[in-house]
């Protein structure tokens, strides 16, 4: 289990001004805490591709955005990710929910391809990623921020399940 409050603390520690994305069951608890936080502006988008364009504009304008989406949305966003955050060399951190992670365990009844395609896609798109499986690993989000800053390219933190 991962506590959303721990991720929020990491987000604030890294000076994030805007969170851009689409809520889902995995990120619901974090979105609710973000909406209640006066220091961070949440901007919802209709499709995840917009999130990368919008966040890129925010960054070039001097803000510090973070993208918060599910892995299915990351797939949808492919060309927008390539054409904006990556091509523009934006040190953008994204938190991406790992939908279907448990379905990859041995004996699972049905494998969710959202999970099986996820890490190969991150690798294919040259996105370094840091896994967070429990609250005590929340500082991996800061590792993603450090990597993004060092390379001036996007980096991801990924988590399975539903935040609490």
């Amino acid at each position: 289990m991962i506590e959303a409050s721990a991720l929020l603390a990491e987000i604030k520690k890294n000076g994030v001004t805007h969170v851009v994305g689409v809520p889902d069951n995995g990120s619901r608890a974090l979105y609710e805490q973000l909406w209640a936080d006066p220091d961070i502006q949440v901007v919802l988008v209709t499709r995840e591709g917009e999130a990368f364009a919008l966040a890129s504009g925010l960054y070039l304008g001097g803000a510090k955005p973070l993208v918060l989406i599910q892995n299915t949305g990351f797939f949808e966003a492919g060309d927008a990710f390539r054409g904006t955050a990556f091509n523009m060399s934006i040190p953008l951190v994204m938190i991406i929910g790992y939908r279907g992670y448990k379905s990859m365990e041995p004996g699972a009844e049905r494998v969710d391809t959202a999970a099986t395609f996820f890490e190969p896609t991150l690798k294919a798109w040259n996105v370094p990623y840091y896994a967070i499986h429990r609250t005590s690993e929340s500082d991996q989000l800061s590792a993603a921020f450090s990597r993004a800053a060092a390379t001036s390219l996007p980096a991801a933190a990924i988590y399975p399940g539903e935040l609490i």
């Binding site: 990368f52 364009a53 504009g57 925010l58 070039l60 304008g61 904006t84």
Partner: peptide, 13 residues
């Protein structure tokens, strides 16, 4: 993606 990109600029500036 130009309009959401421009929206980000407008929000930041």
């Amino acid at each position: 993606q130009a309009p959401p990109f421009a929206l980000g600029l407008a929000l930041a500036q």
